[in-house]
Design a protein around this nucleic acid. Structure first.
Lengths: 256, 256
DNA sequence: CAATCTTTGTGCACGCGTTCACAAAGACAT
DNA sequence: ATGTCTTTGTGAACGCGTGCACAAAGATTG
C-alpha cells in the first residue's frame, strides 16, 4: 500500500477504490499483450487469468469505470486499453526526475518500462559533483544544486528518490518545495510530507523480511519445535546491549 | 500486497495478520535506529511516529506478538528488536540468489540493506555466458545452467528474479523445481507458482501508474468543471461512441 | 421471432483491518 | 499505603475489499 497521506474518504469525485486503482495497471499490461497479438475481445475470465486475479473481482473493478463490456461476448481489447489508460492518466506525458544516481538510480534510468507508458525521464540528479555531466542511459546527470530549477523548468510533478536513506528526507523536502506532488521512494526511510503529496515506497529489505517470515512459518510447521520461549529467557534477551554499527545492523545477536 | 498465492486463512498457526507482518519490518527499522542511539525505552506514540503509523495500530500489532510493553513506561527497545527479529525469522541466515544480473540485478547485489538483516547473497546467476565469472559486488556471476546445483548446494529457499519479463516465468519454474519456496519478483509479469510458494512483486511501472492516477485526480480537482456528472449525463457520455472521453482524446475504436 | 446460450454487472454477505475509547496495569510521588 | 499519572492492551464499531451467486443483457441459432 501507499505510505502516502491520509486515505481519501473526502474527495469522492470519481470514487474508484484504491485497491482497484492498484490493479488497473495489471489489467492494462495484460490487455496490452493481447492487443499486440491482435486479439479483438477478451472475456473477464480470460483476462482475469492473465492478470492473476479472480474474474468476479475484475468485473467489479471494471464496473467502477463504467459498463465497457458486452454481455455474451466480453470486452473489446483496444477500447479497454484506451479507457484504462485514460483513467490512469497515461494519455498524457509525465516528466519525472530521478534523484540519486547510484546503482539503483542508474538501473531505474535504464529501465525500459519507465518510458513505455507516458513516463519520461526529464532529468537525473545527483549530489556528487563528479557525476555531473556524465551521461547515464543517455541522459546527462545534473547536480543537486539545480534541483529546483530543473523541476520548475520541466514542470515535473513526479519525483523518484533513489538516494541513501540519510539524504532522502532532505531531497524529499526540496522536491516538494519545488512543486513535486507525487514521490516514489526507494530509500529505506519513512518520508514526512505535507498533505496533498502522495508517497509510495518500494523497499527491498521489507519485502525480503516478509518473505522470510512466511518462509520461517513454512519451515516451522513441518517441525513444530521452538514455539515460544519462556519469560525467563525473554527477560535475559532484554539485557542484550547495543553493539553493532550504523548500517551493518546484525540481527539482534541471540541473548547469550 | 503480496501477489502470492491464496491468502492463508488456513494455517492459523500463529495467526499474525498479514497487514501486521508487513509493518513489522518498519517497526524494526525504527527500533534499530533508536537502539543505535542507545535509547532504552520508547512509547507507542513515539515509535508510531517514527514508523509513520497510528499508535493504536502499532499497539494492536504488538499485541499479536504478546504483551511486551510496560504500562506507564513503554517498550524496551532492545527487547522489542529481538522479539520482532525472531518473529520475522531474522535470527537465522537466509541465503538468497539473484537471477538476472542486468542493471537492476547489479544494483540489488550492491544494495547494502540486503546483507544487513540476515540475508546473504549466496549467488548471482545470469543467462549471458559473457557475464560468467565476472564479479559483481564482489561475487562472481554464475551461469544459468548451474542454477539447480547452486540452489541445492547452498540450501537456498529465497530467490530474487531480476530478469526481463520474457524469461521470468521460466526462471521461476526452475527455481521452484530446485526447491525455492519464496520469490521476490522484479520482472513485470504475473508469475504462476504452485501452492506453498510465496511470490511478492515489486513493479516500478505499476507504482508510477498509481501515482499518475492520483496526480491526475489532483490536477482535475483544481479545475473543478467535471466533478460528478449526473447519472443522465453519464449515461449519455457512455453512448458517445467513437469520439472521446471527458478530457478530449483519441477515439478509441469503439466496439463496432 | 422465439429459444437458448454466454457473459456481464451487481446485490449481498462475510471477513479483515483500522480506529476509537477506555479499563487495567504499572510507575512514581507523597 | 494510598493516590495520581502515564501508557499499554483490547473490546467493539465501522468501513473497505472480496467473492458468491444470479438476474439481466445481448449474441446466436433454428
Amino acid at each position: 500500500m501507499a505510505t502516502g497521506r491520509t486515505h481519501r474518504p473526502a474527495t469522492r469525485s470519481r470514487g474508484i477504490p484504491e485497491a482497484t486503482v492498484a490493479r488497473l495497471p495489471l489489467y492494462l499490461r495484460a490487455l496490452t499483450a493481447l492487443s499486440e497479438r491482435s486479439v479483438p475481445t477478451v472475456s473477464s475470465e480470460e483476462l482475469a487469468a492473465a492478470a492473476g486475479v479472480n474474474s468476479a473481482k475484475l468485473r467489479k473493478d471494471f464496473s467502477y469505470l463504467g459498463s465497457y463490456g458486452t454481455r455474451g461476448v466480453g470486452y473489446d481489447v483496444e477500447y479497454l486499453v484506451y479507457q484504462i489508460s485514460r483513467e490512469l492518466g497515461l494519455t498524457q506525458d509525465w516528466p519525472v526526475v530521478i534523484v540519486g544516481i547510484g546503482n539503483l538510480g542508474a538501473a531505474l534510468a535504464n529501465y525500459g518500462g519507465f518510458a513505455s507508458r507516458g513516463f519520461r525521464v526529464a532529468a537525473l540528479i545527483d549530489a556528487d559533483p563528479a557525476m555531473a555531466g556524465k551521461p547515464v542511459a543517455g541522459i546527462p546527470v545534473q547536480h543537486t544544486d539545480d534541483l529546483e530549477k530543473i523541476i520548475q523548468d520541466n514542470g515535473v510533478s513526479i519525483g523518484v528518490i533513489a538516494t541513501p536513506a540519510g539524504a532522502a528526507q532532505q531531497v524529499c523536502d526540496r522536491l516538494v518545495a519545488a512543486g513535486v506532488t507525487s514521490i516514489l521512494n526507494f530509500a529505506p526511510t519513512v518520508l514526512n510530507v505535507p498533505d496533498g503529496v502522495d508517497v509510495r515506497k518500494v523497499d527491498l529489505s521489507i519485502e525480503l523480511q516478509i518473505l522470510a517470515f512466511h518462509e520461517q512459518r513454512k519451515a516451522g510447521e513441518e517441525s513444530a519445535a521452538d514455539t515460544a520461549l519462556p519469560a525467563a529467557a525473554a527477560a535475559a534477551a532484554r539485557k542484550a546491549s547495543a553493539d553493532q554499527g550504523p548500517d551493518g545492523d546484525v540481527p539482534a545477536v541471540m541473548p547469550a
